[in-house]
Design a protein around this nucleic acid. Structure first.
Lengths: 267, 267
DNA sequence: TCCGGCTTCCCATTCAACGGGATGGGCACT
DNA sequence: AGTGCCCATCCCGTTGAATGGGAAGCCGGA
């Protein structure tokens, strides 16, 4: 054995190490070794290297945890903090108007990845955390993004087995296909109790500079709420604002003639 | 030459590559090569590897950008998103009460790293972005964290040359030392025009589970504001709430007896 | 005292990483 | 349509950075 008999690259191992901090709790080097399936010596050496670059940190008790430096590097992800930056003011508007959980998410793999959340102190149970995932088929945000995704992408998700969270979760490909068509028709998605029986999600699409749907904006209300659709207009207004900020050409009569500094390619 | 004649590790190069996305804008592989000071072939190979792990992504035009997967991994940083999660509700309180920029930051190296910001739409110019840095000596948040940092840490910062942003920026070690003593005495920091002449920062410390100061909470108001100190009480209340959430033993008569599920080590 | 689990260092082995160079594509001038 | 420039991408011989078993040392509990 030598330079990795298992055949994985340094990079793959680094990702595995970082990935072993699933819950954000500090770990010892040996714990990391076990979780990342690495020899102790290797895990230790990698950990020391990662600490020296700040991607990991030593907690006061000497254990390892994810470092802020990593977060700082990741803060430049256009689809994460960049998107968030554009969306925050509008999310605050929705939050003020509805006093419910407001969530911003993107599609990552087969899952919805939550980028930002404004939570209502005394609203429904909280289902997701920032940085957390939920399978796309189960959440309103996921349905919206799938509905407006390229057909190929949709079929990828439909082809895989879908995990039910509650009795209401859609797990049948054909039902989901019909649901997506309906979402495309009305322009938003409502999922009552698909993730948790007491929570209903309402989501609308957010468009990026190429006019493709790049994110979803959603509110989560108690399933007891008689009129979940009352929030749609606030969501649509906010999503429109975000899309405009992102440089989307909105479906307005007269086209805009912006002198965009980049993107020399034709529209 | 072979396995890196320059003698830098794969990890160091990966960090340099990620670091080259300073402004979040997409880059071509060649641009990355230049910024990270790597041969084109190497930069290209690394980029492909990083993309395969999702740490980088391809923008629609094929250029590279930081991927959400990296952000997801970094979201587990206790001092970043963990802290933010605890702080957000209280930050919203301060935001509602003051209608000014509210900022949460940690000390990282000699700089203040901003973890979260709630911005006031029509308030003062915005000085920092989430994920952005400002030297500790220049900002109110930095002064607070330095004031309550171990003396060794303080001297490290004091020993280095300090960049002035405005005429008001403190760059004299002795003046800064006196300022820090004052901050310790009153329990908060006010810096009028130290970063930008039109902005005044007011910051208070946030305590972590070991009771050490782990973060700063601040508001930024127009320098024209006659009573910047009026915000101190709201800040202190919020900081106290955050500290409690983080598990700090607050200076209250009776100690708390929580049955914490983790941390088997003695309190 | 012994035991289990931890961190940390050592060092011979070897394959993953390296990068110069070649190829080909796209775009903007001319 | 020719020229120049910059780009992405692949090839492939070379080699030293990365590797991991082993061992030593540290702590805390039984």
């Amino acid at each position: 054995m030598a330079n990795s008999p298992t055949g994985d690259s340094v990079l793959a191992r680094i990702v595995r190490v970082l990935d072993s901090f699933e819950d954000g709790a500090p770990l010892t080097a040996s714990q990391v070794a076990r979780r990342a399936d690495l020899p102790v010596a290797t895990a230790h050496r990698l950990a020391v290297a990662l600490v020296s670059h700040g991607l990991l940190e030593r907690a006061p008790d000497g254990r390892l945890r994810v470092g802020v430096r990593l977060w700082e590097l990741a803060a430049r992800a256009p689809r994460a903090l960049g998107l968030r930056e554009a969306a925050m003011p509008f999310m605050e508007d929705v939050h003020a108007a509805t006093r419910q959980h407001v969530q911003l998410s993107v599609l990552e793999g087969d899952d919805v990845l939550f980028i930002e959340r404004l939570s209502a102190r005394n609203a429904v149970i909280n289902l997701v955390t920032v940085g957390g995932r939920i399978p796309a088929h189960a959440s309103s945000s996921g349905l919206v993004m799938l509905a407006f995704a390229p057909p190929g992408r949709q079929e990828e998700v439909l082809a895989r087995p879908m995990r039910p969270y509650t009795a209401a979760t859609i797990i049948d490909p054909n039902r989901l296909r019909r649901e997506l068509a309906e979402v495309r028709r009305v322009g938003y998605a409502v999922t009552g109790g698909h993730v948790h029986r007491d929570a209903t999600g309402i989501a609308v699409p957010v468009h990026g500079s190429g006019n493709a749907v790049v994110a979803a904006l959603a509110v989560v209300v108690p399933s007891a709420d008689a009129q979940p659709r009352q929030h749609v207009s606030a969501l649509l207004a906010a999503a429109r604002g975000i899309s405009r900020t992102l440089g989307a050409a909105l479906p307005t009569p007269s086209a805009e003639r912006l002198s965009s500094p980049h993107a020399p390619a034709p529209g």
